[in-house]
């Protein structure tokens, strides 16, 4: 099924927000990557057709922005802020804990396809370091191993129930 067949109403609502269709590109790519788990070449071409631009333009945009994934990622993308000041407030410890709990290094995905781990730059929540985003929901003050364990358990339960799983944050918790 095409993107339009699956999400016609949402796509029309997105297009209606902008004076020019091309402006809808990021919002449509978010819909596409949530639908297919990542941005496949086919989905990128579909977005190009919807906004009426050459596919190369959309490929270029996908390569530019860090929240657009054209490679396989897990059901949940964990993004740890390792920037200043987090780097001096426990971020490195948080990265090591996650690497050992998940048995992977940064920029890798667990063999069961559940989690991808990444380092990212400032998430604008520096007073609650160390912190991460899981599918763009914030989890703050992760300064003990127990808190990391609880977080992973909670996320595994959500994945099992398919509860608000959106790598693009379209279903973020408000």
């Amino acid at each position: 099924m095409s993107l339009r067949q699956q999400h016609g109403a949402e796509i029309d609502a997105i297009l209606a927000r902008y004076p020019q269709k091309k402006s809808a590109i990021l919002a449509l790519l978010y819909v596409a990557q949530d639908t297919y788990g990542r941005l496949t070449d086919e989905s990128i071409r579909e977005v190009a057709t919807i906004i009426d631009v050459p596919p190369t333009h959309v490929f270029e945009v996908v390569g530019f922005y860090t929240l657009l994934y054209d490679e396989n990622v897990g059901k949940v993308v964990l993004q740890v802020c390792d920037d200043v000041p987090c780097a001096f407030c426990g971020a490195e410890q948080l990265v090591s804990t996650l690497e050992s709990k998940l048995g992977i290094q940064c920029d890798q995905t667990t063999p069961d396809g559940m989690f991808t781990l990444q380092r990212v730059k400032c998430l604008a929540d520096c007073n609650r370091a160390p912190l991460l985003q899981a599918n763009l929901d914030y989890y703050r003050n992760l300064d003990t191993t127990e808190k990391v364990d609880d977080l992973l358990t909670q996320l595994r339960e959500r994945i099992a129930k398919n509860d608000r799983i959106s790598i693009s944050g379209r279903l973020a918790e408000i």
Binding site: Y65, A124, Q133, L136, D137, G169, A172
Partner: peptide, 17 residues
């Protein structure tokens, strides 16, 4: 007549709010 709030992609919950 049309104002945009360009919000960083990471503020997914903020955008919904």
């Amino acid at each position: 007549q049309t104002a945009f709030i360009y919000i960083r992609g990471e503020f997914a919950a903020g955008a919904l709010r």
